[in-house]
């Protein structure tokens, strides 16, 4: 059964990975052999300088989902490379390192540091960061997205994956801009801007006032976005948004995603990615498929 996936020059042994920010401390609760079963590991987004994150409450539960405003708490790229990266490399799984920055120059600086560090399979650009001097996010502007991707592609030794925000009118326009600028793949989607209110206190239930919605609640929208985008771009897509089991993941693959990532549901069942992988294989066997490409984008249009 052929289930390996290529993104640019990177090869992933299988199509199941984890969403950035949802799988820290993996080495502590997965056995070594279990981690190796993942198609790739994607740690939490790293920024140039350390960020302490937002004040509590950082999360709240919503119907079949959650809102988070963590604030990209991370140790900064230098400490990440010195302390965390060696441990991640030791896991023996392809690494997709997620980065975010406040300017194109900072993105480039971080990529140069990662070039030097070595041992990565790909870089994921978390473009849900402010577009300088504008109220929008980079991922909300085709022009800004294209600008960052182009600059990063110029220097990166690794394939580059652009992670898109769903908080846009037409996600295919942003996807096409990223592809044109040279992106090797797309990751979609990030969280949906949302809020929940404590009616007793008449306060937001999130310390940061608003946050990002994730989990099963967003899945149908994410599947639609992946399906629309896959019809228009040639580069592979890592699909995510509310995946809890193999059936959910299969929706994304059939819609046109080449890989899938489990995010929020890792918090409920840390083994979910492994169950998803087994389920995809079982589905392929049941449908007499020998190559995952028979599955990807197989939706009847």
């Amino acid at each position: 059964m052929k289930i390996a996936i290529n993104i640019g020059t990177a090869v992933f042994p299988n199509p199941v990975t984890v969403a950035s920010g949802t799988f820290g401390h993996a080495e502590e609760f997965y056995g070594q052999e279990e981690v190796k079963k993942l198609g790739a590991l994607v740690p939490k987004t790293v920024t140039l300088n350390a960020q302490q994150g937002n004040p509590p409450k950082r999360i709240c539960e919503t119907p079949a989902g959650m809102i988070n405003a963590i604030g990209i708490e991370n140790p900064g790229i230098d400490r990440f490379i010195d302390v965390k990266l060696p441990r991640l490399k030791a896991a023996g799984v392809p690494l997709i390192i997620s980065i975010s920055a406040h300017s194109e120059d900072d993105f480039v600086l971080m990529v140069e540091k990662l070039n030097e560090a070595g041992g990565l399979s790909a870089i994921e650009l978390n473009l849900s960061c402010p577009n300088l001097q504008k109220k929008e996010l980079v991922a909300q502007s085709a022009e800004a997205t294209s600008g960052v991707v182009r600059r990063v592609k110029n220097v990166s030794h690794y394939p580059v994956i652009a992670k898109l925000s769903p908080n846009v009118t037409d996600i295919t326009a942003i996807a096409l801009a990223a592809e044109e600028a040279g992106a090797d793949g797309l990751s979609m989607v990030n969280t949906f801007m949302a809020m929940a209110i404590d009616i007793r206190k008449r306060r937001s239930r999130i310390g940061n006032f608003t946050g990002g919605l994730s989990g099963p609640a967003i899945r149908p929208i994410a599947v639609r976005m992946v399906c629309e985008t896959a019809a228009r771009v040639k580069i592979p897509i890592i699909g995510m948004g509310g995946i809890t089991n193999a059936d959910d993941a299969l929706e994304f693959l059939i819609a046109g995603a080449s890989m899938v990532a489990v995010g929020t549901y890792n918090f409920v069942d840390p083994r979910a990615p492994l169950t998803v992988l087994e389920g995809i294989k079982a589905y392929m066997r049941a449908h007499r498929m020998t190559d995952i490409r028979e599955l990807i984008g197989s939706i009847e249009r």
Partner: peptide, 10 residues
């Protein structure tokens, strides 16, 4: 959420 130190939510 996770209880494992993975989400940094608590």
């Amino acid at each position: 959420a996770c209880g494992l130190g993975a989400c940094l939510g608590c």
